[in-house]
Nucleic acid binder design. Structure first.
Lengths: 208, 208
DNA sequence: GTCTATACTGAGATAGAC
DNA sequence: GTCTATCTCAGTATAGAC
């Protein structure tokens, strides 16, 4: 069939999402897709390149939406910097809003950043979008050095990835997964506070 | 030998740390330890239970140090709440300070939180410590609801885990891994700002 | 160009002899 | 407690049918 490739991608997306990358075998994928094992290697080359293709298909709309939102915010702001909360929401909303529609696959997206699986894949699919947001944030917070801003964005990505992929630890009852909009609001508020934190020296505690 | 178990643990720790969990085979472990393959299953039962034992051995001193620092801070503070920066440093420093000594194994520790690998393991080894810090933070920030505080701790853990396990994406040059103390300071400052962020409603952006 | 059948190597796990 | 032998299943590679 002409759409063997599509069927493989569809099955792989579902199974990687439900079970994770490592726990999903290519034999499960071909059984669900109704194709031959070697077809995966013909079309994609390896398991890693298959998941790369799956990620690409899902990441592209997220990244496009992020850039559209940022474009609009910057057009509205003209020469003035965009508010940090708005930049954060433009970056986070396209990812968080997809959790409800496809929670298992969102888990895989979130995991990518935490796993040593494929830093190259993350870099390839998200770096260019990240650069745009770095520039917007630097304009909003000119007092931060590039290095300090880089670290804060690193922390931001960690908080986002963990929120996308991990169930919160139940230190209290009532922390079940809420409405995506509510989590997004909490995350934006938290990260705005972190991004705007003063950079001065903090109190030291000697260890031991 | 009587110390077969120890030799397996030592080799597994080194190899899991260098290569990650999934990329390390039990056959590599037994080759380095000089024991038989079945010995792992005799002493630990499975690969997953082996890594659980490895984690336990490394997590225990981290958690002990965290609790010692928090105990001391609370003793010094008496009835007054402990400053958020100090609580954060007590939680983060014992983990971050070990990155320099054992960077690869720290990666594994950080990954645990991001991977779907073993949420049960994370829960088992870190939950009781987390509860203590939740209580201390609730005293310092009484205006936060338990649910809001729980989410902020969730975000904090994400930022910490990502910092422990992931190389920062190079949006700017000069963001190479710095001195652990410097990264710790940046992280504490960022998270203090996030923890203290106001909880009010934020501006909405309609999507599309 | 596409796809099928099949073989190869290495993984984790286990039964049973010692 | 330990080790040999073996099982099942994984990802990968290739030869050849259409």
């Amino acid at each position: 069939m002409i759409d063997t490739k599509q069927k493989i991608l569809d099955s792989a997306e579902r199974l990687f999402g439900e079970q994770g990358y490592g726990a999903t075998s290519l034999r499960q994928v071909i059984a669900e897709a109704g194709v031959n094992l070697a077809a995966i290697h013909y079309h994609f080359g390896s398991k890693e390149e298959l998941v790369d293709a799956v990620i690409l298909r899902k990441a592209e709309p997220v990244n496009r939406e992020r850039l559209e939102m940022l474009d609009r915010l910057e057009a509205e702001a003209g020469d003035r910097p965009v508010a940090m909360e708005q930049i954060l929401e433009a970056f986070l909303a396209p990812a968080v809003s997809r959790v409800a529609a496809n929670p298992e696959f969102s888990k895989l997206m979130g995991r990518l950043l935490g796993e040593g699986m494929m830093p190259a894949v993350v870099d390839k699919h998200f770096r260019h979008v990240g650069m745009r947001f770095v520039k917007a944030m630097a304009k909003t917070l000119p007092e931060l050095s590039p290095v300090e801003l880089g670290w804060r964005i690193h922390f931001m990505i960690g908080a986002m990835a963990h929120t996308l992929c991990a169930q919160p630890v139940q230190f209290h009852t009532g922390l079940e997964m809420e409405d995506g909009q509510a989590v997004l609001q909490r995350l934006v508020a938290f990260l705005s506070g972190g991004m705007r934190a003063p950079v001065e020296q903090i109190s030291r505690i000697e260890v031991k």
